[in-house]
Structures are given as C-alpha cells and as structure tokens.
C-alpha cells in the first residue's frame, strides 16, 4: 500500500515556543523579507503559531495553534492552478513545483488556511548567509508561490537511502524539521496508512479535530484539542 504522510498537532503539548517556525526556515531556505516588506504583510513562515485571545483581564486566556499546509486530500489549491505547479503526488502530498509556477496567486486565494506564500521580489541572502542554504531545497525566485512541503526533501532522502539498502522505509526514520525540533513533542509525523504508526493512532484520538474540516478539504493534519484539568481523576 502506498504511504500517506500525515501529522498530528497536540494543542495540549504545544507551548507556543516557535521552534518549529525557526526550524522550518532553516531547513527550507525560507527567505527573510525584512522590516519594510514584513510591514506590508509579506513575511513568509511556512508554519506559524496562531494566537487567539479569549476573554478579558483578569480572565484572559490564550490558545496557540500551529498552522502549516494541511496537505489536503481534496486541496482547493490544486484544481485552480493553470500550470499544475500545485498538484497532488502519489503519496498524497500537495506538491509545489516552483519552476512551473507563473505566479497567478490563484492557489493562494483558494487555500482556506492562507498557508501559501508568494515571492513578491527575488529573495536575498546577504553574503555569506548564502553558505547556509540547504542544497536539498531549491531557492525560489520572484513571482513564485511557495509553501510547506512536509519536508519532501527529507522524505526523498530517506526513501533513496532505504532503496540503496534494499529495505522498506522505517517508521520514524526521519522527521520534518518542525517535528524534529519541537521540544514538547507536540508534532507527530508519519504514515497514516500504517495503522500501527503513532500518527495513525493519535489521529483516531477522541480529542482529534480537523482545521476548517467543514470545508471538505480532507486535511491530513489532525489537531488534538487542549485537555481540561480533572481534579478528581488525579486525586
């Protein structure tokens, strides 16, 4: 059976530390746009930690919610793309082929989660920052849409390694950068088609919900709701 990569985000573990955000930037050559562009709303973060206030002082509460590409099985960003730059892979990934993108930004409008980011200018890496660029990830040019790829370069590396060693890809042999860095293990990645995998088991948790699931985008990311403290249970 082909693999179906998926993720679980445990909102009860997530502390809002944003290690995932920095890790993704470092792994995927995500460009830094600078203050002026950021002020225009053009900052690029393939994964972001959304923050929602609830209530007023002194009863103010906060909810953190890491949001990345949901790798929808019915991805609205795909049919609208006139050049197949945004398309579905056999393993169910929503792939983005940069050199095919002509920059209509239609996919960005169609994506309900606003996780697609556009290169309004050519990215710059002040020398010698360019020496840090990950050679496994191509850099994007002006006019091209980009987004979370589930760190497809890591998936490919692992697959190639497995092939070379003539064996199956092992569970948890690799992780996307955000998952690997997440200090509280709030992010879990794996093969949803393998019922024994941790991600598959957690996806079935009663705390599980889909982000904007009502839109029928069939996301491959499951959010586990924050738990409540049940004093009795513990005493």
């Amino acid at each position: 059976m082909t693999r179906r990569w998926g993720m679980v985000v445990d909102l009860d573990r997530c502390t809002g530390c944003e290690a995932c955000v920095a890790a993704c930037r470092a792994e995927n050559n995500v460009p830094t746009v600078g203050e002026a562009e950021a002020a225009k709303g053009r900052a690029i973060h393939w994964i972001r930690v959304e923050r929602y206030w609830e209530g007023e002082f002194p009863d103010a509460r906060v909810r953190f919610m890491p949001v990345l590409c949901q790798q929808c099985d019915a991805a609205p960003c795909e049919p609208v793309c006139p050049t197949y730059a945004s398309h579905h892979t056999s393993e169910g990934l929503n792939a983005q082929i940069y050199n095919r993108c002509i920059g209509t930004r239609y996919c960005g409008n169609a994506c309900p989660y606003n996780v697609r980011f556009f290169n309004f200018f050519n990215p710059v890496w002040e020398k010698p920052f360019h020496l840090q660029l990950n050679p496994d990830v191509s850099v994007r040019e002006v006019g091209v849409m980009e987004k979370c790829t589930f760190c497809v370069q890591r998936i490919k590396r692992a697959e190639i390694q497995a092939q070379a060693e003539k064996r199956e890809l092992r569970e948890a042999e690799f992780q996307p950068a955000c998952v690997q860095s997440c200090p509280s293990n709030a992010l879990v990645f794996g093969n949803l088609n393998d019922p024994s995998s941790r991600v598959a088991q957690l996806s079935r948790s009663p705390r599980g919900t889909k982000l904007l699931g009502e839109l029928g985008t069939l996301p491959k990311i499951t959010y586990l709701e924050k738990g409540a403290w049940d004093g009795e249970k513990n005493s």
């Binding site: 809002g16 955000v21 920095a22 930037r25 203050e35």
Partner: peptide
C-alpha cells in the same frame, strides 16, 4: 540575527 528579528513574538 535576522531570522529572529522576523520571528513573530508568539503573543
């Protein structure tokens, strides 16, 4: 570090 300058404070 520009990465941290562009990292949104989570709150």
């Amino acid at each position: 570090l520009p990465w941290l300058q562009e990292l949104p404070d989570v709150l």
